[in-house]
Design a protein around this nucleic acid. Structure first.
Lengths: 197, 197
DNA sequence: CCTACCGATCGGTAGG
DNA sequence: CCTACCGATCGGTAGG
């Protein structure tokens, strides 16, 4: 049968999950199809009944993540809010995505450079566009006087990278809960560390 | 001659520089000794007259970086200053290291998981200790009332990861200069985004 | 989903 | 610093 049954469809999902886990733990290049097959419980050759190539799996992960962020950005742009509220909403979305889809988001962020063209160029372009849209929101807040006069592009890269710190939180033992983490991050990034007199 | 001459010593440095560049661009696992040999201009086998193994080169890079950060932390602990000043000094040091030693610092941060034991355990331990010392400085500032009551561990991971954003700045075309970047980062991270009324 | 296998490439060594 | 080569492993295919 060339039409995939429900069973093979979910098996493909299972393989993609395992692949994402290994890509995060060992990196894309250091993950072999034989490693992956072992963790799935089949022979390496059998993987190719479900997926086309190692690279196709990376594409699945990266674009699934990119789509979610782009969708959210479009939603936010349509709903008119004060800039400071939008920035806080964006931050909270990034934090939530990092917690709820930890493996996928981390793989997408760290391993996308191993994509091949045309996926590589496409992904890179989406990434730059997303940051431009983020910077535009901050610039609007500067013009309206809600936000300090800072370099918007610098603010964006700080926000986006700071959120990656959740990786350390994720692995930590004595950790605060997710809600506290979120509130602490938003507070530090929007209001800073220094106590106001 | 078993004693290396000045010439072979500097050739080793040259190889290590090229290796660091490739580790950053393609990742450690995706860099082959033949790739590296090509960029150095010799045969792959000849590399082994200068270095012992691929992994040894990664160790050189990672521990050179770790040593610099640990040294600076010890210097700071000896020089008594207000917490907020210390945090700002730490931040500026991280930013400067990221700019001045961009390749090495990035490789150390992103590829250290490919180290083998005992180097892996050693490096991991140094990393955790560094973050603890950083957190202790923040906690002292909270107790003295200079710093907001936030989770110190969260503040540390935000700072350390935010600084990695310099990678994006480094690749950017229309970029602000290094001093502006530093000042913007320190301002945003210590005083936040929101304009005070 | 498996056995059997492909050509390519890997890190590294022997010997000069 | 090179030629020649090692065993191991890579992503992927043929054929059932």
């Amino acid at each position: 049968m060339s039409v995939p049954s429900k069973k093979t469809a979910s098996k493909k999902e299972f393989i993609l999950q395992k692949a994402a886990l290994m890509f995060r733990e060992k990196g894309f290049a250091a993950t072999s199809m034989r490693n992956l097959a072992d963790s799935v419980g089949i022979e390496a050759a059998s993987l190719y009944n479900h997926i086309r190539s190692k690279n196709e799996m990376l594409e699945s992960v990266c674009f699934a993540v990119a789509n979610r962020f782009n969708m959210h950005m479009s939603l936010m742009e349509a709903d008119h809010q004060k800039s400071i509220v939008r920035i806080e909403t964006l931050l909270r979305f990034h934090i939530n995505q990092m917690i709820e889809h930890f493996t996928e988001v981390t793989v997408s962020d760290r391993e996308w450079k191993h994509l091949k063209n045309p996926a590589l160029t496409n992904f890179h372009h989406q990434r730059r566009m997303y940051r431009k849209r983020f910077a535009a929101i901050i610039e609007k807040g500067i013009k309206s006087g809600e936000i300090k006069k800072i370099d918007a592009a610098t603010a964006v890269i700080i926000m986006l990278h700071a959120v990656n710190g959740i990786e350390s939180w994720h692995r930590s033992k004595a950790k605060i809960n997710a809600q506290e983490l979120e509130n602490n991050m938003v507070l530090i990034l929007t209001n800073g560390l220094r106590k106001q007199e």
